[in-house]
């Protein structure tokens, strides 16, 4: 039914997001808290280009991914120089800056009002309107993302990524240009986050700055940790869980007076329990 399709689509898009963060944080150890910013760049690129300028969907996605990659690359130059703690704080700050740009650059982003009326993707004349078709499109994107990232992390490149995660000094002594690798990883991660953003924009047909604020970056990280860092299948699982748990809680018969709060408390409890019982996540190979 439509509701299940809706959730399947949401989970698939979050699957792409979580995979992309896994690539950056789970495999390479770059704990980025600004991933949602690139998600937002992809979403807004598609929204603005298709709604305001009539660009085709594919072109808007390509531009969104390109933009995210360029911004990621530029930001990574000063950002990756920082040590872990400082890095996390600054990526925090970058997320907040990103949100404010979306909010205040009103001439382009329409600010707080958001952008509505984003149409369903049309690829080579074929319209992907309707949930079943859209799910197919998203699944294709998810599978492509998985396979591309899988290819990379299973190769010697992946060994180097993990080397950097475990000990970047040993990695550089082993002969790997750590800075160059980190920059490349951060950029590729941004690319796929933007792809997820483009898909989400055409799915909800409406976006606003709030959809890309700091908390979203945190949620992606939670999904990643939940599913397990350093394991690509885990990312899919993490995305499924983080979307599914609150939805399942809708059906638990909490009394009407406290329904909202109980759902939130239960959700929080489940997350805490999972972290206590299995801190490396469901399929994880890596603990921070």
């Amino acid at each position: 039914m439509d509701y299940i399709l809706h959730l399947a689509i949401t989970m698939s898009i979050w699957g792409i997001l979580t995979l992309s963060l896994n690539y950056v944080a789970g495999f390479t150890g770059i704990i980025s808290l600004s991933h949602a910013t690139f998600y937002g760049i992809g979403a807004y690129s598609t929204a603005i280009l298709t709604v305001k300028y009539g660009f085709s969907f594919l072109l808007s996605v390509a531009i969104g991914m390109f933009l995210a990659a360029v911004i990621a690359y530029i930001v990574s130059i000063p950002l990756l120089k920082l040590q872990e703690d400082a890095f996390i704080l600054v990526s925090f700050g970058f997320a907040i800056i990103g949100y404010h740009v979306l909010l205040n650059w009103q001439s382009i982003t329409n600010g707080a009002l958001g952008i509505k009326g984003i149409k369903a993707p049309v690829i080579f004349g074929f319209s992907f309107s309707g949930k079943p078709l859209f799910l197919c499109l998203v699944l294709v994107a998810l599978i492509c993302t998985y396979f591309i990232l899988h290819r990379i992390v299973k190769s010697p490149y992946g060994t180097i990524m993990k080397n950097i995660r475990e000990n970047s000094i040993v990695a550089s002594v082993n002969g790997h240009d750590v800075t160059a690798y980190k920059r490349s990883v951060y950029t590729v991660g941004a690319l796929f986050a933007a792809l997820a953003g483009s898909l989400m924009a055409t799915f909800l047909m409406f976006i606003e700055p709030k959809s890309f604020e700091l908390m979203i970056s945190v949620f992606i990280l939670i999904a990643l940790i939940l599913g397990g860092m350093g394991n690509l299948k885990g990312s899919i699982l993490g995305a499924v869980f983080i979307i599914l748990i609150p939805e399942i809680l809708r059906f638990v018969g909490f009394p009407n007076t406290i329904i909202g709060e109980m759902q939130q408390i239960t959700y929080g409890l489940i997350l805490v329990l999972l972290m206590i019982l299995r801190p490396q996540g469901l399929l994880g190979e890596y603990k921070i």
Binding site: K162, E166, V170, E285, K287
Partner: peptide
């Protein structure tokens, strides 16, 4: 490196 295999 602790969280990868000896081979890796």
């Amino acid at each position: 490196l602790p969280q990868i295999t000896v081979l890796e």
